[in-house]
């Protein structure tokens, strides 16, 4: 049985290109320490598997070979790809993780991910025995979903280790677990030092996407890491979308749909018991 200790432990590490913070309570300090360690391990594993930047990741192997032959992947990668495809279908392509070639052309991903042709999510086949195949030359970037998934994986490990409450915050994509209600502050999309709203989060996830984080890029040139997959244009301007969803991968991915297709997103949010807060400046 769980002890009723009130000790709260917080740790922070640089992972997924950002600062990942884990807060947990409900065990003795040593046990919480080990639970948090397990949480970070889960995030590191997702990073190792699904980074498009890292040439030795499983995703890089898929990008390299899946057009030539089916590639067998881990449970985790298979799961993320499956969920990504299902969300692409539900959003009629407003969420599409095959935008890597475009990001590569803009210099936001390594050049070897450039592809010619018009392959999209419909050309990613999920086969038996966790194998993946591309039916056109394409490349996947899981930047819009894997960070949220990593947060979910960490929460799952913490839960299994027996903590009673936990919060995993991967640079703003976060998820709370347990009966405790966490106070979350939202950053102003342009004036990063200003906080705009306060909300409470219990047993749910929150993710924010905004193209206006990189100020210099915003001012000088109309590209961003957020793309409307339907027309290949960059999402730019003073807008920031925060989605609350039951799980973090979903919150993470739905922010992209809200940014590009807000009307369609309304139905999708309702379907997934999620909601969005859109800030425009």
């Amino acid at each position: 049985m769980k002890s009723c200790s009130n000790t709260e432990v917080r740790r922070c590490r640089p992972l997924l290109g950002t600062f990942v913070e884990i807060t947990a309570t409900g065990l003795d300090e040593g046990q919480i320490g080990r639970a948090i360690e397990a949480g970070f391990d889960a995030i590191e594993r997702v990073q190792r598997l699904m980074s498009a930047h890292d040439p030795s990741s499983e995703l890089s192997q898929v990008n390299e070979e899946a057009f030539l032959r089916p590639v067998k992947v881990s449970h985790e990668t298979f799961e993320v790809l499956k969920r990504g495809i299902s969300l692409a279908r539900e959003s009629a392509g407003a969420f599409d993780f095959t935008i890597a070639p475009l990001l590569a052309r803009w210099g936001l991903l390594p050049a070897h991910l450039r592809r010619s042709g018009n392959g999209d999510w419909r050309n990613v086949q999920m086969l038996a025995h966790r194998r993946v195949r591309f039916t056109k030359p394409l490349a996947i970037d899981l930047g819009g979903i894997a960070k949220g998934f990593a947060v979910d994986e960490a929460i799952e490990r913490l839960r299994r280790c027996g903590v009673s409450s936990a919060l995993v915050n991967a640079g703003g994509d976060l998820r709370a677990f347990g009966p405790k209600s966490f106070i979350i502050r939202l950053r102003h999309p342009i004036q990063q030092r200003l906080l705009t709203r306060t909300l409470r989060l219990r047993d749910a996830a929150l993710a924010t996407s905004s193209p206006c984080f990189t100020e210099s890029r915003l001012r000088r040139c109309p590209i961003s890491h957020l793309i409307n997959p339907l027309d290949g244009s960059a999402v730019t301007g003073g807008i920031s979308v925060t989605v609350r969803a039951p799980e973090c991968w979903l919150a993470d991915a739905l922010t992209k749909v809200v940014l590009t297709q807000p009307i369609l997103a309304t139905q999708l949010l309702a379907k997934h018991t999620s909601e969005a807060l859109v800030f425009t400046v």
Partner: peptide, 12 residues
């Protein structure tokens, strides 16, 4: 208590 902040990702 500004403890948990959400917003566009900060780079590390």
């Amino acid at each position: 208590d500004i403890r948990n902040i959400s917003g566009a990702t900060l780079s590390c």
